[in-house]
Design a protein around this nucleic acid. Structure first.
Lengths: 206, 206
DNA sequence: TTGAATTAAACAAACGTTTAATTAATTTTT
DNA sequence: AAAAATTAATTAAACGTTTGTTTAATTCAA
């Protein structure tokens, strides 16, 4: 039950950090939400920042490894790889909206330098892996000569933009305020379709 | 000299808010950066949140009005309007990176509900104006049947992604760490070209 | 002389963290 | 297997700082 409590605190913390930001979410708030004593946060994670780092380190490695795996795969074509990465980001972001909101905020803020740099470095790795796929496609002449890193920025940026607010997202989806688009399989497909069509016509345009 | 001091505080506050977030930037910090007494912030803006709101209200109306103007224009074609909006966002974002970082953070955070809703509403207005352009283009059969609100999300999202960190941006641009891509005219052109090509092949694809 | 601008000092409240005491669980010894 | 000893988990209370804001006095300009 020890690790259960640890992960429980982390899970509740993700939602609070996403909602209020790192500074905006107080330790007392975190403890109340997780239904534990205030001192438990420091007991398990040392500091508030330690808790944040634990969350990031645990969850961010997954996406990075998956992208690395896709990039290194030798049986997939370049366009198949691009499609897989699009699906990976949409599914990952929509299934863990809180976590990715957290990350987005921290990428904007340069206050906690160590944390910020760690995020940037992982992101740069992902960019490089994506670039290598695109560049190979261009060399093979299956892709047009596109601006690879900016194509990556478009994919991530589009999903991030959707993630920015559920309300805005509802306007996009045209549904009512109580409906949760992140949990809707149809909305997910719609987003994937949009990005794929967009990127395909850009990459494969003659 | 009164308004000068007011705007001076606002200008310095934008940079601090962008760098550290709303909660992360303390009033003492703001006062020190603007080289004024701590009490002056409350004297001019009532509260810290009042300062934030003043900044947002002053600057955000400009973009909204420009988009409305473009959408209402009767001499421009639909594709010309789309191009103008792309240029508007890239130029606006790159010339005022601090302000737009601030906005991005506040759109992610739902703590200050009033502020958040105001941002969302303005954004929804912009989305609707953009949609009406796209829908007209589709009706005229000069555009393919695209997902208009998601196309808008792609444009904004791409620029926002670029804005997320100067370091990441430098990796995109392939330059050294001291170079400031936001001030580089060539990088701006590169970004505009990428988005235009991307959106064009998506909208005009047969 | 009147009102605005500016200041240093103080305010209570909230912050992250630590402490010291207590309970619960585990291990060691009998 | 029971008792004792040891470690881990949990708690309420307090720690010193920092927070945003206010006050009351002072300087400045009209």
């Amino acid at each position: 039950m020890v690790t259960d409590k640890r992960t429980h605190i982390m899970e509740r913390a993700i939602e609070l950090f996403a909602e209020k930001g790192f500074e905006g979410a107080s330790v007392r708030d975190l403890a109340t939400q997780a239904d534990v004593n205030i001192a438990m946060v420091n007991y398990y994670f040392g500091t508030k920042e330690g808790l944040f780092q634990q969350i990031v380190e645990t969850r961010m490695a997954t996406t990075r490894d998956k992208i690395e795996e896709i990039a290194a795969n030798k049986t997939l074509s370049e366009i198949e790889k691009v499609d897989l990465i699009i699906e990976l980001y949409v599914e990952g972001f929509l299934s863990q909206p809180g976590f990715h909101k957290m990350i987005q905020q921290e990428m904007l803020v340069t206050k906690r330098e160590g944390m910020h740099e760690k995020l940037i470095n992982t992101f740069i790795q992902n960019t490089n892996n994506f670039n290598s796929i695109i560049e190979k496609g261009i060399r093979k002449k299956v892709f047009t000569k596109v601006d690879a890193p900016l194509v990556f920025a478009t994919i991530i940026g589009t999903v991030n933009q959707i993630l920015k607010s559920k309300i805005v997202c509802n306007v996009f989806a045209g549904y009512n305020k109580n409906y949760d688009p992140y949990k809707d399989e149809q909305f997910k497909k719609r987003l994937i379709t949009h990005i794929k069509q967009l990127i395909h016509s850009h990459l494969l345009n003659k």
